[in-house]
Design a binder for these strands. Structure first.
Lengths: 354, 354
DNA sequence: TTGTAAGCGTTATCAA
DNA sequence: TTGATAACGCTTACAA
């Protein structure tokens, strides 16, 4: 069926630049210029060429263009394995919008897990099919063998700290946000706190936990009533944290989570076990995903401007692709507290008998 | 910085096939063969070549390969605008896994909305950068001008009915599932029902609403107590449906939703207004997204095997790409009822005073 | 401002 | 089985 030279559905061979050139009575070079550097061709000629392009429905062969020009106008966006998660799509969409508007195509994929898949993506950038890379959430992949960081294309990190520095970075103020989370509970009178974090070495968790501890310290709180649970940002690990909570005696009254999904998993688990929120336990999340407003009770959380995170990151990459040098200092975007119904005053002493 | 011939970070020029050929003492043709048609080269030679490839860390230039071979090994997956939704990621991940395993790279993007973005994607397939297309949920985009369906590359539809037929299609049994939803409520004694659907002309909604009505008909139920609300599958439209419900007198006691997100938005809205679920209203969703288990009460719904949907669709496309002809009859995958806590017996007559 | 011509790096044909 | 050679379709010096 699809043997021989590539053919369109009607059986005719695809239009080439020469076809346009002949039809417009100019050379191929002029067509190319009219398309790529309109300023370099006389308006009159340009118009005639463009009209012919439209009439013949010509689309330049992209691989040929990429081969010759040495640039594929394609960007790889590396997302974490937990792409199923509710946080990243908004970031990715914003990146896509920005890249598209500038003539770039986006490929998304995970560099973690699935060895085989990851390898293919990395190869793609070494294969000169990719002009730039955006790395979300520290998922630059295992560093054995070749790395996307060494492929000689510009790399931008969003919400991540790369192992090799010198790459532009866009962050939210994790530490300040974690302080805001914790102080919110502290202000409500909570003194026994549980911190439900991500993997211990995860960039976000390092900074958020640091913020949590600092808020504790500033409140001159003894660490006697403080617990920490290591999750992985997912609903499932929120459930695990809930089970952990249920076994504690006395139980914490305030729970600081490093992601909304963990907070939601936690909430469901403890309320299913009969613990009332926010009367008996206050829970605060991080991210402000769509579902945060729809769980029961609606989740108090930290709003992250996800679209902005993506848009800014994409813009920085585009600058690099144009050859402009970029600032080396991380760009920091601020999150903010959104108070809803999952947090309330700490239960009074008397009601603590569990 | 990145002017002149493309260079790797260390300043050296990328390895070309000729470099490998020289280093291995063979011709470029042999290297190419060793890589692409291993059977066509003597084992001994092949080994020597492969070793050199590894030693020099050679990756074939993909645009060059695509230009010469006429195939870019890239597939476009067209997702709906509501990609932010919780349903598609699992489908897309399954597609990606299948494609990757077969040497294809996946590009995702929406052909709806954002005129400019969509146009770029369609152009990409006309630009011979894309070998095949998978269309999810009827989002083949506006048909004015060029369409991905006419680009001369194989197209597979998942959970969609394309305007032009002749393309392989993978579906779930929407109608049967909607019957199962409705009968579940009917069996629980509900007689006043609200149907919360997607856009009226949407493929899925047409079939689901048909199933809903058939179940009603089979139960010999008068349509007096039946209401229909047109949503768009999103959380927000679930909220709107909830507000609609709250104004009804008498209120329906059973609500059939065409997506989990609408069911969750609905649930939150009516329970916030003091309506108890499932005591006063039973709600059933469609999809079985991750959050279905985590809303309050946990959502009774139709489980869709999302991974299978994607995997099967991808396999069909891969067959087409190999040139194998494929069956013309739609492949139908079965969904199944998952009973959780949002549905229960219809309230008794006496308690209906609202 | 436009045309000529030389590649970009690979694969496939054909001959050896 | 392997090697020389001619494309694939486009861009860009350079020349006119």
């Amino acid at each position: 069926m699809s043997k021989g030279p590539p053919t369109l559905e009607n059986g005719s061979r695809p239009i080439r630049i020469l076809d346009v050139a002949h039809a417009a009575g100019v050379s191929a070079a002029t067509v190319s210029r009219a398309l790529s550097h309109p300023a370099k061709v006389r308006p009159e000629t340009r118009q005639r060429v463009m009209e012919t392009v439209r009439r013949l429905d010509y689309t330049p062969n992209e691989p040929a263009r990429a081969l010759r020009a040495g640039t594929a106008r394609m960007v790889l966006v590396a997302v974490p394995n937990l792409y199923s998660g509710a946080f990243f799509p908004a970031v990715v969409n914003a990146i896509d919008a920005e890249l598209s508007a500038n003539g770039y195509t986006m490929i998304t994929g995970s560099l973690e897990g699935a060895e085989e898949k990851a390898r293919r993506l990395v190869d793609l950038v070494y294969a000169r099919q990719i002009d730039g890379v955006i790395i979300l959430a520290n998922c630059s992949g295992p560093l054995e063998g070749r790395s996307v960081l060494r492929a000689g294309v510009p790399v931008v990190a969003i919400s991540a700290e790369l192992r090799e520095n010198g790459h532009p970075t866009v962050l939210i103020d994790d530490e300040a946000c974690a302080i805001a989370q914790t102080q919110h509970l502290l202000n409500l009178g909570h003194r026994r706190l549980l911190y439900v974090g991500g993997p211990n070495k995860h960039y976000n968790d390092i900074h958020r936990y640091r913020g949590f501890r600092q808020a504790i310290r500033e409140a001159c709180l003894s660490s006697a009533g403080i617990r920490r649970f290591e999750g992985d940002f997912t609903l499932a690990s929120g459930v695990a944290a809930g089970l952990f909570f249920l076994r504690e005696r006395p139980r914490p009254t305030g729970v600081v989570c490093a992601s909304d999904e963990m907070a939601i998993g936690f909430l469901k688990t403890v309320t299913a076990a009969g613990v009332k929120a926010p009367q008996e336990v206050s829970v605060i999340g991080f991210d402000d995903i769509e579902f945060a407003e729809f769980c029961e009770p609606a989740l108090t959380t930290i709003h992250q401007p996800r679209g902005e995170l993506g848009a800014v990151g994409a813009r920085v990459l585009l600058q690099r692709l144009k050859g402009d040098p970029t600032v080396d200092k991380p760009i920091v975007i601020k999150g903010e507290l959104r108070v809803r119904s999952s947090s309330g005053p700490a239960p009074s002493r008397s009601s603590l008998v569990s």
